[in-house]
Design a protein around this nucleic acid. Structure first.
Lengths: 219, 219
DNA sequence: GTTTGTGAATAGTTTCACAGCA
DNA sequence: TGCTGTGAAACTATTCACAAAC
């Protein structure tokens, strides 16, 4: 089933598969099956097989998946086989947390530049990265930077997005809780932390009723 | 179209509609239409009307939506009409950023307790919240806390999730990049920051070739 | 005229069941 | 036998088009 439109949901799951595969591989395992990988990451085996099938044959029937080739394959699909540099805009609380966030490295991602409007921050280093003045946010692609991360207050986010696009950025991860318009050809993904937390009460049984099986130790 | 299963995607969008409505309302506007709200938040008008239709009649034909009643309606659906307190576990870089994150308040959400294993942090205040020892994470529901936020390293995340559930938490927002098992009746939402960033290069045209609309043909 | 609310049509995603290969 | 790869079926979500209400 090659050469069909790849579902977005499939693309979203690939990094999860990759992390699972890396985890197994670092534990010394050389081969896995859709069942084992699925149990590890919390999906169903046929989901994994179906997702892989959009890109061709990944494994060997009766045997499973060779982890080295699986990892290399997913890395290539996601274009993570070459490292990527990102520019962070906004070195406040969230931005600083992102600078020291350990999770990017496994995907070959690195925050290689940081920008802020606050003159007191500019010129200093944060987690080894020099904080530059936001007005010098230009020509990022000449510096090999194609990704941007927006961690500024929402009222500045559209402006920052435009500056990033003008500087040559082609993909943006946005943490500002606001609708942002970018030109076609630029991919924007928004993470809205408060929105996700705001969904939780909907799913939570009301009041003090209904406790259920599980880890609960009743007082 | 009342009384049908509400799509998860609809629930996910409600906080976005709520934010848009609050934004307009705070700007002094009293009434809006699906078109205006849609333009503000970046969706299509029929999406909004369809989503609302799962919960009954929200507006007046030919007129639009009264913002006060719209806000109150969505707040009630999401159970945000009463405030919710959350317990934060892990007061590292990310946890500290969440403590000073301004976006929760508009949804009536508040981080009311914070826990960490690090003895040097315990007893101190961060953004007005006392950091408690993680071993005292108990009986949160007696303190009126029903939500938990996990901001600890991934290897501790499952353990922390179980502690939160044992303490009576019914909804968890998890930032640890790992599959976590919780008992039925507990809602878990995971935000995987690195995973989202890792998706971006896939959508970014490769190398220095081909700008413009062209999403490349698959290799 | 305007704008909502919604069945019906379309599109997208997940799940199944099993053929095909080691 | 064991496990993958994949059409087909089932399910879920989005988009359309228009009647109904103001």
């Amino acid at each position: 089933m090659r050469y069909r439109k790849i579902p977005d949901e499939t693309v979203r799951r690939l990094p999860v598969y990759l992390r699972g595969a890396l985890h197994l591989s670092q534990g010394g395992v050389e081969r896995t099956s859709s069942r084992k990988l699925a149990d590890l990451i919390g999906v169903e085996p046929w989901q994994i097989r179906k997702d892989f099938s959009y890109f061709g044959d990944f494994g060997t029937r009766g045997v499973g998946y060779d982890l080295r080739s699986l990892i290399s394959r997913i890395n290539r699909i996601l274009r993570l086989n070459v490292g990527h540099k990102a520019a962070l805009v906004g070195v406040g609380n969230l931005g600083s947390a992102l600078l020291s966030f350990p999770g990017f490295r496994m995907y070959g991602l690195e925050i290689a530049a940081a920008f802020d409007v606050d003159k007191r921050k500019v010129g200093r280093r944060k987690v080894g990265v020099l904080v530059e003045d936001i007005t010098s946010l230009r020509y990022l692609n000449r510096r090999g930077i194609h990704l941007g991360i927006i961690a500024v207050p929402e009222n500045a986010s559209q402006e920052v997005a435009e500056a990033l696009v003008n500087a040559g950025v082609k993909g943006i991860l946005n943490f500002a809780p606001r609708y942002i318009v970018v030109s076609r050809g630029v991919k924007l993904i928004t993470i809205d932390i408060a929105m996700d937390l705001a969904c939780l009460p909907y799913y939570v049984p009301a009041g003090r009723a209904v406790e259920r099986t599980g880890f609960l130790t009743r007082p």
